[in-house]
Design a binder for these strands. Structure first.
Length: 613
DNA sequence: ATGTTTTAG
DNA sequence: GCTTCTAAAACAT
């Protein structure tokens, strides 16, 4: 559970898990190709501001590349088709759709999205099960079951061979190796066939090609996938021994990688590692701000460096802000060990943010205009990602205005944050230093943004004047003199509301009954002055629900998340003015049946509680 | 709880 | 004259 084990973690590779890593080929371009199939045969590039963020393989064949300036791209390839990709909505939607498709094959729901275009899947259970089904005397005619219940769901395959590419290209003979090693080899082989099947399904059903890596942990499956791309897959073959470098495919595979290529080793850590093995400050590649170095230091160089080990690494890397135990973690990565689990499928994001960048933004008027645009996008995103159809028709027919709208909030953000990236003032010599540092201020999310009856335009304009402008003044107290290169607004501090859908295949109906009993206890107490939820009452109902409810009970009303604004006064006192009307005017609503006060997003759940109880 | 840093795609 | 637009996690306060 707790992944941070103190300095010395044992150097153990997990050999019992099988992890697939999917990476959709040039994803942004593929989304446009999916919408407009004619693009498939043309050189296609996706533009954001002044650069190409990605391009299809036809464009790459003609010399285009990621993060290239538009004008350079046009020089290299004048007939390139350029599409604008600053609005990420279509990519986000496609990503969710493909993720849902892949997840539908999972038995354990351990499928984790990384960005829009990558998915890790822990398929250990499917592999284990199918390994048990093999007939050792006729491996060539095997059948892979995709469902334990439905024996017709699956595909035929040849379990005597690996599907797709391998690293290394030809397999080493391990017929004399331990039973564990033989078992691992068979598991990886099965996984390669599963990967191939999933790739074929993704292409035939959804029209997307991808690149897959097959190994025993996230680190290795992700890295090995890169060996052959696009539209391809690579399996990291055993032996995965930990003790003998000469016969360890993991070590020989990793040793050739530049250290900065290892996921988890970013620019900062990589620089410190380079400095240590080179015994001097590594040069940075001018022109590129981040990610560029002329000094090539490989994993093997660091791993074999005299005196290296988790403790040394901890000492090299330590400093303000560096996580405790980083030395052990990096030592693990250099040795192919990564015990981080593939996360459970997440229903809602933890934060939603919208940003735009500018070459010049230095007047308050323009800032207000931009904040309005960003706020509208943010509220639209909140509606798209945090709202769910009220599928229960019986309750919909009862009472309340929120139910009539037919949607409810599955999660709500408690905090709004404004970030900017100021452009640095000019140096005496007229030049300008580049900085990508951001500064931010945050405040409670006002409840009115959850009102589904008001227009987005009105709500965002209110959000700008009542929350974002005050935050902006905190960030930039001076009237002028600043110039912003970026503005970001974010809805953070996300709290899930109790949901029928719940996470990850739990028995939600049972959970709801218990919750109702808790709520009844609370209601009985409600008439009293001492009507505060007490901890002991909660302890009778252990686990996730209890803590989730405890979390939301501080407002005094159970089903009802804390009204975030009323109790914390804005420092300037100004943006608080409409106190009198708050009850009727959009912030807080009162239940007609029991008189409980709550924000609008809580009403649907609250009325359902009345009906069921 | 709020703000910053690092990493990642 | 110019590097996009996000998301998560962990640290520091």
């Amino acid at each position: 559970m707790d992944q941070r084990s103190p300095p010395a973690r044992p150097l153990r590779r997990q050999l019992d898990s099988i992890i697939l890593h999917f990476d959709y080929d040039c994803f942004y371009a593929a989304v446009f190709e999916s919408e407009t199939p004619e693009f498939r045969s043309l050189p296609l590039a996706v533009q954001q501001k002044q650069i190409i963020v990605t391009c299809n393989y036809e464009a790459r064949r003609r010399g285009l590349s990621k993060l290239q300036l538009i004008k350079d791209a046009k020089k290299v390839c004048p007939d390139v088709v350029i599409v604008l990709g600053e609005d990420l909505t279509r990519f986000r939607n496609a990503s969710k759709h493909l993720y849902a498709f892949l997840t539908s094959f999972s038995w354990n729901n351990r499928a984790e999205r990384l960005g829009f275009d990558e998915v890790f899947m822990d398929v250990s259970d499917m592999i284990e099960y199918n390994a048990g089904l093999l007939n050792p005397n006729d491996l060539a005619n095997s059948y892979f079951c995709l469902s334990k219940n439905d024996p017709t769901a699956g595909f035929a395959y040849d379990a005597s061979q690996v599907a797709g590419h391998t690293y290394p290209e030809s397999s080493t003979d391990i017929s004399g190796a331990s039973p564990d090693a033989q078992r691992l080899q068979m598991h990886l082989r099965l996984a390669s066939h599963l990967a191939k099947h999933l790739r074929q399904q993704l292409e035939s059903e959804k029209g997307y090609t991808c690149t897959v890596g097959v190994s025993t942990n996230k680190l290795l499956s992700k890295l090995v996938g890169n060996v052959h791309k696009p539209d391809s897959q690579t399996t990291l073959l055993p032996p995965y021994t930990t003790d003998d470098d000469e016969f360890d495919n993991v070590a020989s595979f990793l040793d050739g990688h530049e250290i900065g290529k290892i996921p988890g080793i970013g620019f900062k850590i990589a620089q410190k590692l380079r400095a240590h093995v080179l015994q001097r400050v590594p040069k940075i590649d001018a022109g590129l701000v981040y990610g560029g170095t002329k000094e090539v230091v490989l994993v093997g160089h660091v791993r074999r460096h005299p005196g290296i080990g988790p403790e040394t690494l901890e000492r090299i890397l330590e400093g303000p802000g560096t996580p405790h135990g980083i030395g052990g973690k990096i030592w693990g990565l250099l040795n192919g060990c990564d015990d981080t689990e593939v996360g459970l499928a997440r229903e809602v994001p933890k934060q939603i943010s919208i940003e735009d960048s500018y070459t010049r933004l230095n007047t308050l008027g323009e800032v207000v205009k931009e904040l309005r645009l960003l706020s509208e996008s943010l509220l639209k995103r909140m509606h798209a990602d945090l709202l769910e159809e009220e599928e229960d028709v019986e309750t919909t027919e009862h009472v309340t205005a929120t139910d009539k709208i037919g949607k409810r909030w599955v999660a709500y953000p408690k905090t709004i944050r404004l970030s900017t990236r100021p452009r640095l003032p000019q140096n005496p010599d007229g030049s300008r230093n580049r900085s990508f540092a951001r500064i931010s201020r945050s405040a409670p999310m006002p409840n009115f943004v959850f009102n589904l009856k008001e227009s987005i335009e009105l709500l965002s304009s209110r959000l700008v004047s009542e929350s974002l402008i005050p935050l902006f003044r905190k960030l930039h107290p001076e009237k002028s003199g600043w110039n912003l290169s970026l503005v970001n607004i974010a809805a953070t501090n996300m709290v899930d509301t109790a949901s029928e859908k719940g996470g990850a295949g739990r028995d939600i109906s049972k959970m709801f009954k218990r919750q109702d009993e808790v709520l009844k206890q609370w209601r009985v107490e409600e008439g009293n002055e001492s009507a505060e939820m007490d901890e002991d009452g909660m302890e009778a109902y252990p686990s996730r629900q209890a803590s989730a409810m405890r979390e939301s009970s501080r407002g005094g009303s159970e089903d009802v998340p804390t009204p975030s604004q009323e109790d914390s006064v804005g420092n300037d006192g100004k943006w608080e003015s409409e106190d009198e009307d708050a009850m009727n005017e959009g912030d807080t609503f009162m239940c007609e049946q029991c008189g409980a006060a709550m924000p609008i997003y809580a009403m649907a759940a609250h009325s359902r509680w009345h009906i069921q109880g």
